[in-house]
Amino acid sequence: MIVRDGGLDQPATAALLKAHLADMHASSPPDSVYALDLSGLAAPDIAFFTAWDGDTLLGCGALRTLSGGDGEIKSMRTDPAARGRGVAQAILDHIIATARAAGITRLLLETGTGPMFDAAHRLYARNGFVPCPPFGDYVATDFNRFLSRPL
């Protein structure tokens, strides 16, 4: 498995992000879905990463640079066929290393609640993320959680 910078131009990435958005909307009320589409992830303040096994896309994730030394993890997604292979951990490790190299001192994220998000909650807890208040323009609801981790 190789984690690479970029990949937004790949058809497999577009398909994975389309499935990700569909799952987010199926699992949470519309006002609690903060997932970004392909164009949102192409913003200049976002670094996007993809994990590959040869020509097969395994997953993706992104790092948004915020003010005050903060960074935000966005759009973590593993292809269902690749789950259980450590894809999310590899992408998260890459995001953390990239954030440190960029001088980011704290990572933040917003994620959903419910069974669909249980694996994500376990991943983030294993990696030292703890609950925190909402940040940026996010609004707390019963359908989201906010987590942070110092670097």
Rank of each mutant, 00 (worst) to 15 (best):
residue 1 M to L: 12
residue 1 M to I: 11
residue 3 V to R: 05
residue 4 R to Q: 14
residue 5 D to S: 15
residue 6 G to T: 06
residue 6 G to L: 04
residue 6 G to Q: 05
residue 10 Q to G: 08
residue 15 A to T: 12
residue 16 L to W: 00
residue 17 L to P: 08
residue 19 A to S: 13
residue 21 L to K: 10
residue 23 D to A: 15
residue 24 M to Q: 15
residue 25 H to E: 11
residue 26 A to F: 04
residue 26 A to M: 07
residue 27 S to R: 13
residue 27 S to C: 15
residue 28 S to G: 05
residue 29 P to D: 08
residue 30 P to S: 09
residue 30 P to F: 00
residue 31 D to W: 07
residue 32 S to F: 10
residue 35 A to F: 11
residue 38 L to H: 15
residue 40 G to W: 01
residue 44 P to D: 15
residue 48 F to E: 01
residue 52 W to K: 01
residue 52 W to T: 00
residue 53 D to E: 15
residue 55 D to G: 13
residue 56 T to A: 15
residue 58 L to W: 05
residue 60 C to A: 13
residue 62 A to W: 01
residue 62 A to E: 00
residue 63 L to E: 02
residue 69 G to E: 00
residue 70 D to G: 09
residue 71 G to S: 05
residue 72 E to N: 00
residue 74 K to Y: 07
residue 75 S to Q: 01
residue 77 R to T: 08
residue 78 T to G: 07
residue 79 D to Q: 07
residue 79 D to E: 12
residue 81 A to Y: 07
residue 82 A to R: 02
residue 83 R to P: 11
residue 84 G to A: 09
residue 84 G to V: 10
residue 86 G to W: 01
residue 87 V to S: 01
residue 87 V to R: 00
residue 87 V to Y: 00
residue 88 A to V: 05
residue 90 A to K: 13
residue 90 A to C: 08
residue 90 A to E: 04
residue 91 I to D: 00
residue 92 L to F: 09
residue 93 D to V: 02
residue 94 H to C: 12
residue 99 A to V: 02
residue 100 R to Y: 02
residue 101 A to L: 09
residue 102 A to I: 06
residue 107 L to P: 03
residue 108 L to I: 04
residue 110 E to Q: 11
residue 110 E to L: 06
residue 113 T to G: 09
residue 114 G to M: 06
residue 118 D to V: 10
residue 119 A to T: 10
residue 120 A to N: 01
residue 120 A to G: 06
residue 121 H to R: 13
residue 121 H to A: 13
residue 122 R to I: 13
residue 123 L to P: 00
residue 123 L to N: 03
residue 123 L to W: 06
residue 125 A to T: 14
residue 127 N to V: 04
residue 128 G to H: 08
residue 128 G to D: 06
residue 129 F to C: 03
residue 131 P to D: 09
residue 131 P to Q: 08
residue 132 C to A: 13
residue 134 P to E: 03
residue 135 F to Q: 03
residue 136 G to R: 08
residue 137 D to V: 11
residue 142 D to Q: 11
residue 145 R to W: 07
residue 146 F to C: 06
residue 147 L to C: 02
residue 147 L to K: 05
residue 147 L to N: 03
residue 148 S to F: 10
residue 151 L to F: 04
